[in-house]
Design a protein around this nucleic acid. Structure first.
Length: 826
DNA sequence: ATCCTCCCCTAC
DNA sequence: TAAGGTAGGGGAGGAT
């Protein structure tokens, strides 16, 4: 059942997504809020004579920049005009640049830094492209000397209270890890819902059926986007297709190195691992997150430093990260597959295993027919290529994908497995990494053919009992591990090994607290409790130089960890804070030597499943009282350690809630009748929830017999009947994740939500917020097109409401695309 | 024997 | 400058 069914009030389920929006509040956003609350008040005239146009996504957002300009005497243009003096952008595809003429393109930090220092800074230091002509600015600005921002605040280390947020919004590895976990959860959640519908399957009726009758042997598909980050980036940079391209933070393989840096690099040179070898003091140590196949041909690999990559491939082009784009594309990828089957094991944001046995049999398709269909669909929806591999198990499917890449498909048939496997290099087997490869090399084993004839004893002696056994099976193409559609978390952790340079013990403690808060909130997101806390430290190795070669990197380190296990699950963040500080003390490491820290929570237990109605209520309450919501914890056996498989969970958390309430009530008021306690508890609930609870727990009699039915809460009478839209006041960057979440978590859009959203957009039109409407409509169209027809209808309803607002305000409609390819077919 | 803690390794 | 995270499998060796 949809968690939003039944009640049409202000809460409506969107409230529980508040965490998403609150999670990412940048310093600037706070600054903006400050500005927004006193909008009428002008703060300065820094930007007198400046008229900006914002192009593309920026941070702060366009909307925020608009407010900042208003507050500081500048002008904000929605469209480029002769009087536009600057274009503000964070990154622009080259195509657009040509069209922008001679108006300088400046980074948004020009605005924010100017405000910070309360004077107009020279925009030329903030040009987005340094090769841009600066000779013909529309207005001549005096050259302001480089401002004296105090240096420690400029270089962001973990001493900065906003470091975690800043780091996460730039970390590719963090993104990969968190997206992967989200998609595993996404599949698990969909499988938990009783209803299943696969609208995509209709399309399968249109593709040619297999001539032969399709056998029912199991077929596993492995699907993987080709150099994911690059492909997403090339969607808007078609002129770079076919060229060696890398996604990196740095734009240039060479940097203007300081003497200190050159020295640091030289000092560290002899200890750098092999993949860092070809660097000198002037080459960039920004890592290549993803590179195109053209770059791979030159020997460039993911994870390499840009400086090293450019030595191998001098004409390599760099493009910036586009985290929103990766999320969008992977969302479309998953939504596409999910419209055919839920027999999916999510591996990461761009990769999954799918059991397609049923699809092939039911629709009598050949593997090739299906592969072509699904690859085309993904390509046309995302603009990004993918490869597919097919086999009888996950190993075979995966190795098939390797052969299929790039942009291809390969079916490893059972009769070919033996021959095919013999040629595979051991390095290509999943589970064989750097260390294992070295050991195998030492044994003289390079291909699976070599391993096939090796002895189990030798392999096990060298690699361990388990790994030895596995690799012998793998070498023959066997894989007994079935696809895992249901994924249960065993640990939650947060770890930072970058930017750790503490100047005092206090800074170190503060950072530990931030990390603690981070893991705690993630644990709550997955509705779990933990009994074990582990602190992990990276400590400068005794013989490693104090200055690392890589800017704020961890350098050569020793890795240490220590844990404590508690008898009861932790129910308070402060317990985590306490434990990690204790652990840190016991580990006896000077804070100056720290180069990395992490907290892991394990020995997890599920909190009891929560009644959605009650949960909403509790969350509302906790928001009011500003105490973090405490999910109800499952009952535990009273004696002995809980062991695997002995977890007990109450049937319904509501009964748990009642029980705990009763316990606390009867402690304070001894000798109280059960009925009275029930009435007490009921009194706490708002009217609309109370009715539901009374019914669910058969409390009608109690209420009827009770001295008097609990009076409706006062606020019911005093509260104004008009409800405020849950979206009002949200910036687009805040609203967008909410919409994402909505679309990914609901099989069908509910009428209530659609109306509410449409109503919000109608209001936006009335408020003349056309810019946000355009972005929103574009987004909705793009994203809804990858969902099924119910969503298409929802999209049209939202558009209709928006157009009503437009007509009311402007007497004209907004131009929006209303058609979806799939609707034209049907 | 079996469990627990502290590692190491791998994958994306 | 640069953003080297995160989860799971498994093993060595000590504790029980």
């Amino acid at each position: 059942m949809s968690r939003r069914r039944g009640r049409d009030d202000e809460d409506n389920g969107f409230a529980e997504w508040g965490g998403y929006m609150e999670a990412k509040k940048s310093k600037l956003r706070e600054q903006y809020k400050e500005t927004a609350t006193k909008q009428t008040e002008k703060l300065s005239d820094i930007f007198a004579g400046v008229a900006i146009l914002v192009n593309g996504l920026t941070n702060p957002s366009s909307e925020e920049l608009k407010q900042l300009m208003a507050a500081h005497g500048g002008t904000f243009h929605l469209y480029q005009h002769a009087s536009t003096t600057h274009i503000i952008a964070s990154n622009l595809p080259n195509v657009k640049i040509n069209k922008l003429g001679s108006v300088p393109i400046v980074k948004p930090s020009w605005i924010t830094d100017s405000i910070t220092l309360n004077k107009l800074l020279d925009y030329r230091r903030y040009l987005l492209y340094t090769n841009q002509s600066t000779s013909q600015p529309k207005l001549a600005f005096p050259v302001v000397p480089k401002p004296d921002l105090d240096p420690p605040s400029k270089t962001k280390t973990a001493s900065d209270p906003h470091f975690l947020e800043e780091f996460y919004s730039n970390s590719r590895l963090h993104l990969i890890a968190t997206l992967g976990a989200e998609f595993k959860q996404f599949i698990a959640d969909l499988r938990d819902k009783p209803e299943r519908n696969f609208p995509g399957c209709e399309k399968l009726l249109l593709i040619p059926q297999s001539k032969n009758f399709v056998k029912t042997t199991p077929v596993v598909m492995h699907i993987d986007m080709d150099c994911f980050f690059v492909s997403v980036g090339l969607r808007t940079r078609p002129e770079l297709r076919g060229l060696p391209v890398a996604v990196t933070h740095a734009r240039n393989p060479q940097i203007n190195a300081s003497k200190e840096r050159e020295d640091a690099v030289t000092l560290n040179m002899d200890r750098l691992p092999q993949h860092m070898e070809v660097v000198d003091g002037r080459s960039s140590m920004s890592e290549v997150a993803s590179c195109s196949y053209e770059a791979r041909k030159c020997g460039v690999k993911n994870g390499m430093f840009l400086g090293a990559a450019a030595k191998l491939c001098p004409n390599i082009k760099t493009i910036p990260y586009d985290f929103e784009g990766y999320k969008e594309v992977s969302m479309i990828l998953y939504n596409t597959l999910v419209s055919y089957t839920l027999d999916i094991e999510a591996v990461s944001c761009d990769e999954m295993y799918v059991d397609i046995t049923d699809i092939l049999t039911i629709f009598n398709l050949s593997v090739e027919g299906w592969a072509t269909h699904i690859r085309n669909e993904i390509m046309s929806k995302t603009g990004c290529p993918c490869s597919t591999g097919f086999g009888a198990n996950r190993l075979q499917a995966r190795l098939a994908t390797k052969k299929a890449k790039p942009a291809g498909s390969y079916h490893l048939k059972p009769e070919d497995v033996e021959v095919y496997m013999a040629e595979i290099a051991v390095a290509d087997l999943p589970g064989v990494g750097r260390a294992t490869l070295q050991k195998l090399k030492a044994l003289g084993l390079e291909t699976c053919g070599d391993v096939q004839v090796a002895s189990l004893q030798v392999l096990q002696k060298e690699l361990g009992v388990k790994a030895g056994e596995t690799i012998l099976e793998q070498a023959r193409g066997l894989d007994r591990k079935p696809l895992n559609f249901h994924h249960e978390r065993k640990s939650v952790s947060a770890e930072i090994n970058y930017g750790i340079r503490f100047k005092s013990l206090e800074e170190c403690h503060n950072f530990l607290e931030s990390l603690g808060n981070e893991v705690w909130s993630r644990l709550n997101e997955v509705k779990m409790r933990a009994r074990c806390v582990t602190l992990k430290l990276m400590v400068r190795a005794a013989d490693a130089p104090v200055e690392t070669a890589k800017f704020l990197g961890h350098g050569l380190c020793d890795s240490l960890s220590k844990s404590t296990t508690t008898t009861h699950p932790i129910v308070d963040v402060r317990a985590i804070h306490r434990e990690v500080k204790n652990l840190y003390e016991k580990m006896n490491v000077e804070f100056v030597e720290l180069r990395g820290m992490g907290i892991q929570l394990s020995k997890l237990e599920k909190t009891a499943p929560v009644n959605p109605t009650l949960n909403r209520f509790l969350q509302q309450q906790s928001k009011k009282s500003d105490i973090p919501a405490k999910p109800v914890v499952a009952d535990r056996p009273t004696r002995g350690r809980p062991r695997k498989g002995t977890k007990t969970q109450p049937k319904n958390s509501l009964s748990n809630f009642f029980k705990s309430k009763k316990d606390s009530l009867s402690q304070s008021k001894l000798q109280i009748r059960k009925e009275d306690v029930d009435l007490e508890v009921l009194k706490e609930l708002p009217q609309e929830i109370r009715d539901e609870v009374i019914k669910e727990y058969n409390l009608e009699a109690t209420v009827a017999a009770g001295a008097k039915p609990a009076p409706p809460p006062l606020k019911k009478e005093t509260a104004p009947p008009a409800r405020k839209s849950p979206f009002s006041g949200l910036q687009w960057c805040q609203l967008k994740p909410v919409l994402y979440k909505w679309m990914s978590s609901e099989p069908k859009p509910s009428e209530v939500d659609v109306n509410m959203l449409g109503e919000h957009f109608r209001q936006l039109a009335v408020d003349r917020n056309i810019e946000m409407l355009k972005v929103a409509m574009n987004f909705l169209h793009r994203t809804f097109s990858s969902l099924d027809c119910d969503w298409h209808r929802a999209y049209r309803d939202i558009v209709d409401l928006t157009q009503q607002g437009m007509v009311a305000r402007y007497g004209a409609t907004l131009h929006v695309n209303r058609t979806f390819p799939c609707c034209q077919v049907s």
